[in-house]
């Protein structure tokens, strides 16, 4: 047995103007999960400590919280993997959410983004009478099983740095779940779904891989890339900056072997988008004043034909 100190964020939106912290000491084996340590604290010391939990085995997705500054499932985190040398475990509510009571947060923005997906199958012939079930081949199903493991714990949403500065971003979980329907052969709303998630800022993903800590290995970062590829393949909302950026990068690499910065900036914003270009002009001028402008044209690398051969063999889109 070990004495573990839980340093807990305490706040009740109904009564408190500001949060405070309580240190609660529990006597538990050091391999106890953070969730079980919290349960012990609640049962034996302070019944008012609030947190969400249900299954205790990483299936229900209720108990995600910040543990020593790192977001994850309390039921999947043994105390001895996170506590410091004094046996202290610091627990806080998930970031990117409004706290409600102690470790419980308002999940509404997260669920709102889910419900915008219409997260149910919408077959093209939904109104007709079906004589038999809609069948899916094992290969087609294989693409969906990882994402179907999502338990909607919102760990990825809490970790996302884009959500932290712009709550309009759909967030990793919703985009991964959009993929689950976009790639489902039974669904008839593929283009509409791609358009909806694009409008919820699919292309605002910063490629940071913060969501690679998914406790269920859904790998939202990879599914985000899959949805972007689907959007380019189906040519949905191609005039937005995201797809234009991806395609102009692809184009400059094919032409020169290099990512040609100047052309990428112009191609993403739009060569004739005067207002857009004026917005980036001040930074451009500050860089120019320091002699730091990227060259207007990039000289192709030696043997650039080899790069073009690769692009052609793979039929890589460049526009």
């Amino acid at each position: 047995m070990a004495k573990i100190t839980l340093d807990i964020f305490r706040f009740d939106e109904a009564t408190d103007a500001v949060p405070h912290r309580d240190a609660v000491v529990v006597d538990v084996p050091e391999t106890t999960t953070v969730l079980d340590a919290l349960e012990t604290a609640k049962a034996e010391i302070d019944g008012s400590i609030s947190f969400r939990r249900s299954c205790r085995s990483a299936i229900c997705g209720s108990c995600s919280m910040n543990i020593n500054g790192i977001t994850g499932l309390a039921c999947k985190t043994p105390c001895n993997t996170v506590m410091d040398e004094k046996g202290v475990v610091v627990v806080d509510p998930m970031p990117n959410f409004q706290p409600m009571k102690d470790l419980v947060v308002h999940m509404d923005p997260f669920w709102d983004k889910y419900s915008r997906l219409k997260p149910y199958l919408q077959p093209a012939d939904a109104d007709s009478t079906h004589e038999r079930e809609r069948r899916v081949s094992p290969e087609d199903m294989k693409k969906l099983v990882d994402v179907a493991n999502c338990i909607m714990c919102a760990t990825c949403y809490a970790l996302c740095p884009v959500v932290s500065v712009d709550p309009a971003f759909a967030g990793p979980a919703a985009i991964a779940y959009a993929y689950r329907f976009i790639e489902d052969v039974r669904d008839g709303q593929r283009k509409e779904r791609i358009a909806q998630i694009s409008e919820d800022y699919l292309w605002l993903c910063a490629h940071c891989y913060a969501c690679s800590y998914c406790p269920k290995h859904v790998d939202p970062h990879d599914r985000i890339i899959d949805v972007k590829r689907a959007s380019i393949k189906d040519r949905v909302l191609m005039n937005e900056r995201g797809p234009r950026h991806a395609l102009v990068v692809s184009k400059t690499i094919k032409q020169t072997g290099m990512l040609a910065e100047t052309e990428v900036i112009q191609g993403t914003i739009g060569r004739f988008n005067v207002r857009g270009l004026l917005k980036v002009a001040p930074l451009g001028l500050r860089m120019a004043a320091k002699g730091k402008m990227p060259p207007p044209f990039v000289k192709p690398i030696p043997k650039v034909d080899e790069v073009r051969t690769i692009f052609e063999a793979l039929e890589v889109p460049v526009s």
């Binding site: 380019i232 690499i253 650039v304």
Partner: peptide, 18 residues
Amino acid sequence: TAASCCGASVVNDVNRDV
């Protein structure tokens, strides 16, 4: 010197192999 761009995380968005 004859190496190309690594793909810069962006070409993944258009093709999974390039």
